[in-house]
Design a protein around this nucleic acid. Structure first.
Lengths: 125, 125
DNA sequence: ATAACTGTATATAATAATGATATACAGTTA
DNA sequence: TAACTGTATATCATTATTATATACAGTTAT
């Protein structure tokens, strides 16, 4: 496991750990059911509190990227295509929300939006 | 002008003022170039500090919903429909591009996206 | 001119949210 | 039982948010 903490980056430590591990899981660099470094071990490496590594792991677990066996360790969760799909859908929904807000602010109708999207789709393919 | 402050709603006072005035401007209930209540007068009515009403007005001005003549008052901005619309459309298009990229990454069809949007629209209204 | 009104600018205070932590605990394993 | 796992609770510092007071400067009508 290779984690790099940039202290002068604005993003919090737990977030950097979270993102890097997540990326390694998604990319397959970390294999299914592979044991992750212990929260304490990793914390020691990074010279931070293990509470911070725990926070990163908690987040990853909440999103289904790892599972924990108490007193044993944390493991990479079997890859769940559905999970990735869910995440993507969530992002899309966020964009849609933004669009709807924008549309409301200048009184665009439903149809206007739908046709904008259809138009964009044709342009792409 | 009719503003209603709900103290036990979670949303901050300045935000409630901002939203309600904005809605009245967009709906046409407040007419172009109409003078808005002075920040002090409104504050007195609502029994809050005028700094709070000022904050709401500042936000509205930043977004182009009103203009201010110092020492005179605040007025409903002429609806610059064209400009606002162009800017908003550009933002919406950016979001659509993002959505299409995300959709492609998990093999979502056109129809899937359109129906997501329609669903979101229903949820909002 | 001056009283009564406009908006402005700067500084302050209370509260809430965020980020990171220590310490004490409980289960697992060699 | 020593050395390791993760857990739970409480704490602390920092930052962001919300609302405010006070002193200022321009406009307007008396």
């Amino acid at each position: 496991m290779h984690i790099l903490i940039d202290n002068k980056s604005g993003t919090p430590i737990y977030d950097q750990i979270y993102s890097q591990i997540k990326a390694q899981i998604i990319s397959g660099q970390l294999q299914e059911n592979e044991m992750l470094p212990s929260i304490r071990g990793l914390a020691k490496d990074l010279r931070i509190s293990f509470i911070t590594t725990k926070r990163a792991y908690d987040e990853l677990e909440k999103e289904g990227f790892l599972y924990t066996i108490p007193a044993k360790g944390c493991y990479v969760a079997p890859k769940n295509v559905e999970l990735l799909r869910e995440e993507t859908l969530k992002k899309i929904e966020d964009h849609i929300d933004q669009i709807l807000k924008l549309a409301a602010s200048c009184n665009l109708s439903k149809d206007d939006i739908v046709s904008m999207i259809l138009f964009a789709m044709e342009g792409q393919e």
